[in-house]
Design a protein around this nucleic acid. Sequence first.
DNA 1: ATGGTTGCTTAGCAA
Length: 258
Amino acid sequence: MKIATWNVNSVKARKDRLLAWLATHEPEIVCLQELKTTDEAFPRQEVEASGYEAIVFGQKTYNGVAILTRMGSSEVKYGMNDEHEDDEARIVSARIANIRILSVYVPNGKATDSDKFIYKLQWLRRLQAYLQREVTPEEPVCLCGDLNIAPDERDVARPEEWKDSVLCVPPVREAFAELIGWGLVDVFRQHHAEGGKYSWWDYRMLGFPKNNGLRIDHVLATRALAEACSHVAIDRNERKGKKPSDHAPVVATFDWNG
DNA sequence: ATGGTTGCTTAGCAA
């Protein structure tokens, strides 16, 4: 069983690529981020015609997350549902194959001296609280998404250039470590200790041609599920060619019967 | 070749 995550950077701009990718790879579960569209404008019919149910938490212009699945889903939850006022669509969750699946788009944070960075750190604390409230490390949980965090130097092509960025600074890496500490395993790292593999390259400054990348898109699984993970790959080819997203999909394969 | 983004929305913001 394959579980994928992909920040598509506008599902409308990426529709043809998304449908072709689904047809080629046929993952059972796909978590999408940065839909940049409302529920109404999501290409639901075409996705369903490809064999997928679409669980969509959209937003006009910015953000928006979804879960696509070829299996049955239940217990769908939209948003964080905590005490904070928040109109940003950044998390959606469902039970699929007896796994609690979360599709997450962590705020980028813009710059470390900005209000958006405060919001990023607060949002990561809220995510930690969400896990503690909604699930346990003893059950099968798979948190997928654009976390906008490169966990360590192995995940950054040019560590010196990026060390002060919102993707790398200590507070965000500590937040990532807290997710791991709660009971999640970075299944990509589990199979690729060597590093040097990236999931995002800036459109600007020839980021991809120069391979100036970072690994900021993640599949995190609780222990029992992580033990069933046989391999993980970043589909770097999807970043090539005409009109790619700036993110590549990450695909994790599990020996899992649900 | 001596620079070099994309998407949404419509000039500016976000990433």
